[in-house]
Simulated assay, not measured.
Amino acid sequence: MDGARLRASGLGLGIVSAITFGTSGPFGKALITAGYSPLQASWTRIAGTTLVLVPLALLLRGRAAGRAVRGRWPLLLLYGVMGIAGCQSLYFLAASRLPVGVAILLEFTGPVLVVGWMRFVQGRSVPRSASIGVGIALVGLACVVEVWSGLGIDPLGLLAGLGAAACQAAYFLLIDKVGDDVDPLVMTAAGSTVGVVLLAVAAPPWRIPWHLLTTGVRFGDRLTPGWLLVVWIVLISTVTAYLTGVAAVQRLSAPVAGAVAYIETVSAALCAWIALGERLGVPQLAGGAIVLAGAFVAQRSVAPGGPVVEPVPYLEAAGVTSSDG
Rank of each mutant, 00 (worst) to 15 (best):
A68Q: 14
W117G: 13
I84M: 10
Y79N: 01
V134S: 03
L93Q: 04
V114G: 06
A142F: 09
G123Q: 07
M82A: 14
R67K: 14
A103E: 02
C143Q: 10
A103R: 00
M82R: 01
L76E: 01
V102G: 06
P74E: 09
G110D: 07
G123D: 03
L75A: 13
W73H: 13
C87S: 12
I132A: 11
V144G: 11
I136E: 07
F92P: 04
R72D: 15
L141K: 12
S96N: 03
E107G: 09
S96R: 01
Q88T: 10
G80W: 10
V139M: 10
S131L: 15
A95D: 08
L98A: 02
A130T: 03
G83I: 05
V112D: 07
I132W: 12
A130D: 06
V112Q: 01
V126D: 06
A64Q: 15
V81A: 14
I104E: 08
L113Q: 14
I132S: 01
A68G: 12
L141D: 04
I84P: 03
R70K: 15
V112C: 09
G80A: 12
V112R: 03
F120N: 10
A130H: 03
L105F: 10
W73M: 05
A65N: 11
L141I: 13
Y91F: 15
L90Y: 07
Y79I: 02
G80H: 08
F108T: 09
S125Y: 10
L138E: 10
P99W: 03
A64W: 12
V114T: 11
V139R: 13
G86W: 00
V121Q: 13
G71K: 09
G71L: 11
M82T: 13
A85C: 11
G83V: 00
E107L: 11
L98H: 04
I104T: 08
F92I: 01
L77H: 07
V100Y: 00
L113R: 06
G140P: 06
V145G: 01
L138V: 15
G110R: 07
S96V: 06
G140L: 12
V134T: 09
C87W: 07
L90D: 00
L78W: 11
P111D: 02
A142D: 01
Y79G: 00
M82W: 08
P74G: 11
Y91T: 02
A65M: 13
F120E: 10
P74H: 05
V81M: 06
S96A: 14
F92V: 02
A68H: 05
I132R: 05
G135R: 04
